[in-house]
Each structure stands twice: as structure tokens, then as C-alpha cells.
Design a binder for these strands. Structure first.
Lengths: 195, 195
DNA sequence: GTCTATAAAACGATAGAC
DNA sequence: GTCTATCGTTTTATAGAC
């Protein structure tokens, strides 16, 4: 009796974790299948190739972030501080829950010079981020300056994730959040520790 | 007539470029051999495995940086501004010459949760960086603050490299340099565009 | 829908001729 | 020191029984 063990969406979630932890090239279809409680042969019933699966995973993550993370930037009933704080809390939860950091950042560095297959969803993620965060900063800064602050925050987040991954100084993520909020509050850009 | 086609050091340099561009797991021994003008079988005469080669490449990069990049931080005859500016110029040249960005950063994200084989040289790189940059900042800030500024600069550099890789906004590296020098000059931490 | 079995290709690594 | 040839393994992907 062939009972369905997983849904397509469950596979996307499990696969996301495996890709985040191991990277794209290091992950085998067998790894992905077993993470879903399936044997490799069964796994091909859902996804015809690793590349197709990865593209869907990236799209799934973008959809999730758009709905549950970046959306808060446009809830004008909240103050800019509340919106930025909540956005970062939700983003960091996704980044820090389960090992591996940021799937988008990892995949950029691992694949961008080897294939263009993933370029569009990867760029979309960072566009969505800077648009959302930039929108919040626009409540205090002119558009151009707000965009640059958002871009700079993306840089600090990705760089911090890398250093956390290397040495486990998890306070770096909190520092990121503190700086981002302080810039919003002060209308200027303080240093890493808010000196 | 078996004529020697490459030296060990030439292999390390070529391999560094290939690893930087393609990543560790995506790179095959055939890729590495051909990059050196050799066939796969010949390549094993120099290095017994891909892992051993990668470790030597990382050590080679660390040695090079120690001698030709970070060393300038301790040339007390130069002003702190000159030392920091030159250190970053040399570091960015290595990062931006030939595609792929920062081999150390790439390798952290690609391998740190899959194997511990490369952990030591990777940590060594970032330790060397923060020690060198921290030493420069100590000419203006107390030790603890100087270390945090150096750590924050490492974050900004690695994050910037990632965003450059994604979208080609190469001005982000110049911004990094400008911020680093401005913090040194001002005795405080300005924002991304020096507002 | 899941399984076993297997094909087909890619890859790391070795052996031996020159 | 470089080459050809090949071994053993891993991996992607497919076929067919249940």
C-alpha cells in the first residue's frame, strides 16, 4: 500500500535545510530523499532533477519572505522602529533556526560564476530586502540615502552570518540589529558597537 | 622526454583561482589538472588528493597575505591612514583580480558545516586580518574598541564581496575603504556613504 | 506513491609504459 | 615527469514490480 509520506511543500522545506547546511553541489539526491524519509527512486516522483528542485526551493523561500518577513515593512500602522525591528527579528529567526545561515547568500557565492540558473531568484531576494528596508528608512531619509542604508544593512547581515559561521560569535547578529535601529533613530550612522 | 610543465607553486596559484571561481565541491581534479596544462593522471604526481591540495592552497594564501598584505599594518614608519589604505588596496587587489572574490569567505560558507578539515586555516585568515587591522586602529582607539572595528570591517568586506558578486556594484568595495579610513580619521564610525 | 534494481555518466585515485 | 588506461566508487536518472 503506497501511502504518501510527504507533500511537495514538506519536501521544499526539508530540501531548503539540507541545501543550507551542505551547499548545492555537495548535496546529493540521496541526501535530499532521505531527509524526507524517502528512497532516491521515490524522490524523482516529485522532482525531476536537483536543479529544478533548487529553483523551486529558492522561489519558495522568496514567497515566504515576501509574505511573512518583508511584508511588515509596509504595515504603516506600526512605527518605523517597530517595522524594522520586527523585520529583522523574523529574518534572523529564519537565518539562525537550523544551521547554515542564509541560503541565498550561500548560493550566490557557490554558484554565481558556474551557472546562471539561480541568478534571478537570488537577485530577487536582495531586491526584495533592500526595497522593504529602504521603504522603512525613507520615513526618515531621502530615497537615495534610504536605499544606500538598506544596501549597507544587507552587507552587514551577510558578512555577520559568515563570521558567525566561522567562529560562533552570535552577538554579531544582535550588533547588526542594534546598528540598523540606531541609524533609523538618530538619522545618522553610528559604529558597530554604538560607541 | 618528460619535461616539467609546472612547479608546485604554480599549481597552488592556478588551483587557487579555480577553487575561488568554482568552489571546492564543484571543482574536479580534472579541472585543476587542465588549468595547469596537465592530464589528471599527471596531476597526482604533485598532490595526492583534492583535500590535501586545498589545505596547501589555503596555507599558501595565508602565507602570502601575512607577508604582502597584513605586514604593512606593522610598518610603524607609515602613518595609520597610509597603513590602512595600503592594506586594503592590497587585499582588494587579491580579491578583485580574477573572478571569485574571497577564497576564504567562499570556503567558510561552502564547507564549514560539512568538514572541519579547513577550519584552522580559515580561522587563521580572519584572525590575521583582525589582528593587523586592529593594530592600526589601536593607534587611535583602545584595544577592545579597535578589535571591534576590525571585526566590523571584516564583516563589511565579506558582505560587500557577496553583493558585488551578485550584481556587479563594484563601488561597494570603494565604500568599504572609505568608511574604514573615515573611522580611523574621525575617531568615530560614520555611515555607509560618509553622510 | 514507494520500492528495488540497474543503467549511464562522472569522479577520485592508482598502475604502469615511456 | 607525463602520459594512457583503468579500477572502484559515487551520483544522476530511469524502469518496472508492488
Amino acid at each position: 500500500m503506497p501511502v504518501q509520506k510527504v507533500t511537495r511543500e514538506e519536501i521544499l522545506q526539508k530540501a531548503m535545510r539540507v541545501f543550507k547546511r551542505q551547499g548545492y553541489h555537495r548535496t546529493t539526491m540521496d541526501d535530499l530523499a532521505r531527509a524526507c524519509g524517502l528512497l532516491k527512486g521515490s524522490f524523482y516522483h516529485y522532482f525531476s532533477s536537483k536543479e529544478v528542485l533548487m529553483k523551486e526551493v529558492l522561489r519558495y523561500v522568496n514567497d515566504f519572505n515576501e509574505k511573512h518577513v518583508f511584508a511588515v515593512a509596509y504595515e504603516e500602522s506600526l512605527s518605523p522602529e517597530e517595522r524594522l525591528g520586527q523585520l529583522l527579528d523574523r529574518l534572523f529567526r529564519g537565518v539562525m533556526t537550523s544551521e547554515g545561515g542564509c541560503l541565498m547568500g550561500n548560493t550566490v557565492l557557490e554558484t554565481s560564476l558556474v551557472t546562471t540558473e539561480f541568478k534571478e531568484p537570488l537577485q530577487q531576494h536582495f531586491t526584495n530586502f533592500t526595497r522593504a528596508v529602504g521603504h522603512i528608512y525613507e520615513s526618515v531619509f531621502p530615497a537615495e540615502k534610504a536605499f544606500r542604508l538598506a544596501e549597507h544593512l544587507a552587507i552587514e547581515i551577510e558578512g555577520s552570518i559568515m563570521l558567525v559561521r566561522l567562529g560562533g560569535h552570535e552577538y554579531l547578529m544582535q550588533d547588526c540589529r542594534d546598528r540598523a535601529l540606531e541609524r533609523l533613530r538618530n538619522g545618522r550612522e553610528p559604529g558597530p558597537s554604538g560607541s
